[in-house]
Each structure stands twice: as C-alpha cells, then as structure tokens.
Nucleic acid binder design. Sequence first.
DNA 1: CTGAAAGCGCTTACAG
DNA 2: CTGAAAGCGCTTACAG
Lengths: 367, 367
Amino acid sequence: MPPQEPSRRTGRRPTLKQVADALGVSIATVSNAFNRPNQLSPALRDRVLAEAARHGLRAPDPAARSLRRGRSGALGVIYTDQLSYAFSDPAAVLFLKGVSAECELADLDLVLIPRSSTATPEETAVGRSVVDGIIVYSVAEDDPLLSAARRRGLPLVVVDQPATIATRPWVGVEDEIAAADIARHLFDLGHRRVGVISSEMTRERTGGPADISRQAAAAFHGTAARLRGYRRAAEEAGISWRDVPVIEATDNSEEQGNAAARALLTDHPLLTALLAMTDQLALGALRAAEELGLSVPATLSVAGFDDLPAAAAHRPALTTVHQPHEEKGRVAARILLRHLAGDDIIDLRRALPHELRVRSTTAPPSA
Amino acid sequence: MPPQEPSRRTGRRPTLKQVADALGVSIATVSNAFNRPNQLSPALRDRVLAEAARHGLRAPDPAARSLRRGRSGALGVIYTDQLSYAFSDPAAVLFLKGVSAECELADLDLVLIPRSSTATPEETAVGRSVVDGIIVYSVAEDDPLLSAARRRGLPLVVVDQPATIATRPWVGVEDEIAAADIARHLFDLGHRRVGVISSEMTRERTGGPADISRQAAAAFHGTAARLRGYRRAAEEAGISWRDVPVIEATDNSEEQGNAAARALLTDHPLLTALLAMTDQLALGALRAAEELGLSVPATLSVAGFDDLPAAAAHRPALTTVHQPHEEKGRVAARILLRHLAGDDIIDLRRALPHELRVRSTTAPPSA
DNA sequence: CTGAAAGCGCTTACAG
DNA sequence: CTGAAAGCGCTTACAG
C-alpha cells in the first residue's frame, strides 16, 4: 500500500515534475534549465523557466538537491556556550562577521547550531544540521557537542582550541605566548603584587578564588594557556606563582570583571596591578576601580586581552593584547572550504599573530 | 545504466542500510531506533545503536530526513545589507540574539542567508537554503531578495517593514509615532531650527542633502516612516518642513553621523538641534560636536533613535527612543514558528512598544 | 539538444 | 515488536 500521509510541507510546494508534465518534457530537462543552462536551447529554456514561474517554482527543492548532490552549500558554527550568548560577546560577533564575509564570497549559508535545550542528549542538534562542515569556535575539550560533531564525520575546523589528531584543521593565536607578553609588560614596569581575573576554567561555572589545583583542571584551552603564560612571566620575574591570587569569573561580562576586581582588592589590598584574561573583564575591573576611587594607572594598573573596539575607546584607553578576531573567522571559513575541496590537511593550520598594545591603563607602581 | 558517479560527500558517510545489513534487521528498525525508541524492544534498540556507533553513524542523514519529512528544522534570516554588515550593526546583533534565543528553545538551526556575490541573480541564495521559513529583517520593499523569498512560497515574517498582503506576518515598532515623539520633545523644548540626519532612503546609496522629492522616494519603510513622524511634529509646532534641512547618510555608522553633522552645521550654522534617525548616527554627531567645540546640550541638542546600550553609556547620555531589539527578534521567531504550526494568520502581527528616553543630550536652546 | 532510468538516504502507515 | 514497500524531489552519465 502506498503511504498516504500528507506532506508536512506548508503550502504544497511545486515540483519539477509538475512543470515537466505541463510542458510535455522530461524532468531532466526542467532540471537542466535551472542547473546547466547551456544543455538546452535558449528557446526551450525560456519556455521551461516561464512555465516554472507560472507554477511558482523558483528553484529545485533544496533538501532533495542536497541529498542528491551530497552537499548542502552551508557551513555550520558551534559556540562555547549557549548560542544566544555569542551575540553578547564582542569577540564572537567579530569572529562571526569574518565567517559571514567568507560565506558571502563563496555564496554559502551560515548555519548557527544551537545547543539542544531539550532533555535529549546534546548530540541531536549538531547531528541534524544540513551543513557540509563545521567550525568549532572556542569549545571546551570535553564538550559533548564537540565529540558529537567529531563522530558525525563531517569536516571540522577547530578555533582557539589545540588541534587534536582527530581534527587537524585549526586556527588560533599563540595564547600562552601572548599572555606571557602582557604579564611581562606589567612585571617589567616593576609590579610585584599582581592579581589575575581569569575566564571560566571548566564548563561548570564555579567562580571565586582558584587555587593551583583548580587551575590545573582548566578544560578551556584558552584559559589554561593564558594561565600558563602569566605564570611563566611571573616566574621569570622571580615571583612565585603561589603568591599570585587568581579569581575565576563565571562568564565573560563586565559585571563579572567588576565583581572579581572588588573581591581581589578586598582580599589583597596591596595589589598594584590586575591582569584580566579578557577585555570585557578588564573593562569591568576598570569600572570597579573608578567606583572604589582608585585612580588608574596611578594607583592601580589594569591590563586586558583581546583588543576589542571598546578597549581603545575607553578612557583611559586599555592596555591589552591585540588578536585579529574577524580575520580569525575569515581564515577558519577559508580553511574549512579548502578542506572540503580536498586540500592536503597538512597546510590547514594557522597561528595568527598577536600584538601587545600598551595604552593608558598601565604604569609603574606608585608605592 | 546506473549512474556511476561517486558521491561527492567527503568521507563516505555510513547509512542506515549498512547498519541494518550488519545486524540482519530492516532499515525501518534502524530508523525507529533513532526516531521512535518505544517502537522496538530496549534490547534491540541497544544493539542497533551500538552497531550504528561502530559504523560511525550518529544520526540519520539530515538532507534525506529533511526531504522525506518535508521540513528541515531550520529558520532562515535575510538582512537589509550584506550579511557581514549585520555584525557591525548593534541593533541587528541584538535582534539576532533574540532570534537565536528562540531557536535554542525550539531546537532549531538559525541559517543566515547571504546575498549572492556572484553574477547570478540575487535570487539563487535565498532559493537554495534548506529552511522551513524566513525572517525578513529590515529589507527594502524593492529588494530582489525579498521578492525571491516571497516567490519561493515559504512562510515569511517581515520585520520593520510594512506588511503587504503577500506577507501578512509582521513585527515592528510604530516608527512614525516614535519619530514624532522624539521630534516633538525637541520642539517642546523650544527648538525652531532643527536639522535631520537621515538613514539611507534607497538601496542605492546617494548620500548628501535630501530634498522633498528625494525623501518621497524612500524605499526603506523605517526611513520613510520616521521622516513622516519628524515632519508631522514639525508642522504641529508650526514649522514648515521645507525649513528643516535633511541630510542622508550612506550607511549606519558613527563616521557617517559625524560627517553629516558637520555638513549640516556648516550649511546651517544657526541650527540648535540635530535629530538623528539612529543612535549610531547620533553618536557620530556627538563626536562631531565635541571636535567642533560645541557643548552638548548647552549649545547643541542631539537626539537619536534605537536606544542601543551605547546610548545610555555615552557621556553625556543620549536622549533617544527606546525600541526592544532583542524582543523583536524573539517575537519574529515565535510568530514564524506559529505560522509554521498553522496558526491563524490574523494574530500574526505585533507592534512592539517604544518609549521616549530623555537623557542628557537635549535641553532648551540657549539662543 | 533531449529523455529514460537509477538512485541519493531516509520515514511512514500498515500488515503481520 | 518488526519488516516490506512506497516515495519524498531531485541530478547525473549516458544513449539517442
């Protein structure tokens, strides 16, 4: 018995077959009119297209075409966190801008893949998206979404995480070196009592003071690498890492930076400088300093990481490490495209340059 | 002859059939193991899933599933401009945040559809995306992408444009009323010589002074409606619209606001207030005033529209009209979802509230 | 320049 | 609880 269920598609879309029947030609010819214009005479093509338009058919059905062709013309992106948070994260917005610019050039859709909010395993969402490859943006090493993406067997490019054997294509910045650079800047200025405002270390948000064992558990590559960089610079300056208080934020917001700075300054009133792991956190720390009546950089130095547009715009302008967020997005998309085209995977790794930007929130300690 | 072309799919994905054959069951059973767990015994389901995992099969092929089911589990968005510009537009970013939050709740992909950069008609991109419906965000009435989207026959919800008969579902703000409100605020303060910094009127960016005939050609609904609101308030205040100079920006950036303010102030040195059609433009005008040494609001009043986060954060804080950008995104997504579910189209229209926010950039004229 | 035929991988109502 | 069969709508290599 033929299954008689009605199509779920709203409004019953027209098909190539309807157009072919109306014209008395084969569906291959209708398909060719859309896909290989020079396979048929201009006159026939015009007739086919006119008839198709009359039926309200603008293009062959995308799902059927994707199935038959084996590719969809879309790139997927998965994000650290809930998808909607990405739009509150200026670095992510710049990154997506870069990705979208490349999609535009290649005429590819950009699919933002949410984390499933349902009770089903997080794997479902990433398993179901119609995409040719996935950009994994700043996702924790132990994220089930990442393993689901890997198991799906689609080409992947990992951004801001160390590449593993399973996913060679990679783009990022030398986080450890960059972090050491900015920490060294503070130590070179003469600071000895420095506090660190760290990003989240694991997917479970604990927050608060983070001792060495907590630091060792960091699953976010970026956090772990920057912490190592800070530590290296401290030890090179002859400062024991145990003497550097580290506080962990629960998300990348100014509010968290503000709260963390207050906590640090309360517990360690002698601190002369704050090393924030992102500009958002640094901007929050700056606000805390202002509210506390501490003048920056005279009484307190503050350094960030990222060089968001807001860093240079802030008064005083924030000393930070620049990284090319938008370019990172472009490069990630380009690598994925080359990967899809079958390029040799050896070349699919790119460390992007970073640069220390000394501005007005850092100075030698006054004490 | 069977076509022998190899599948284009990278890495030869495993299929339900392979798993079924390996186990000696039907592919229907494998499908059921994924889609209707309680259609088979737990023991068999476990065996099927284990075998599938062994083959590296996490989920049924998305394109085939979309074709067969007649729906894809994805929502599309098209934007006014090049897709990558959306990420430089704070209002668009907030809007997308709202859309993505709803996608997350409904476990749907969010597909950002680019404009084709190739020579092919702009219609190709929007014709090919695998989506169940499309959100048309702030697109000009005469945009070919909009007509392409309409012709595709997919459910559409139009945002920030007037709804036409062809696309009833609609979300937006009462632009004309909101614009009249803020203009009236200026006139009530006693301003008589007011200049307008307008957003683009048509898809072709001309820029520069815009006389009444140019204004009448405005194809962007938001621009046209706000202009009408300004005009109404001016005329209610007994001011002839002909005496109100209007300058048109070529994009929604602070740079354009700065340049437009300078041009306006150069040609009309007696202006006591500037009415900017967006906060971005207003922020640029504020910068121009600062660079020109005009004190705000003592010498010059400036008003915006949108109430971006940067408006309240600016010193002095910008007087503007608040509109709920993120909420607009949420509502657009919800309406589309209800539309897809077959809800009565009558209810699918929502005007969102706006609110005048008087802050510190407006005051009575000093002259 | 045009068409017949195979098949992309899946889901579903129904029979057993 | 499990399977046979139909068919979603299309594209392609090839024959004519």
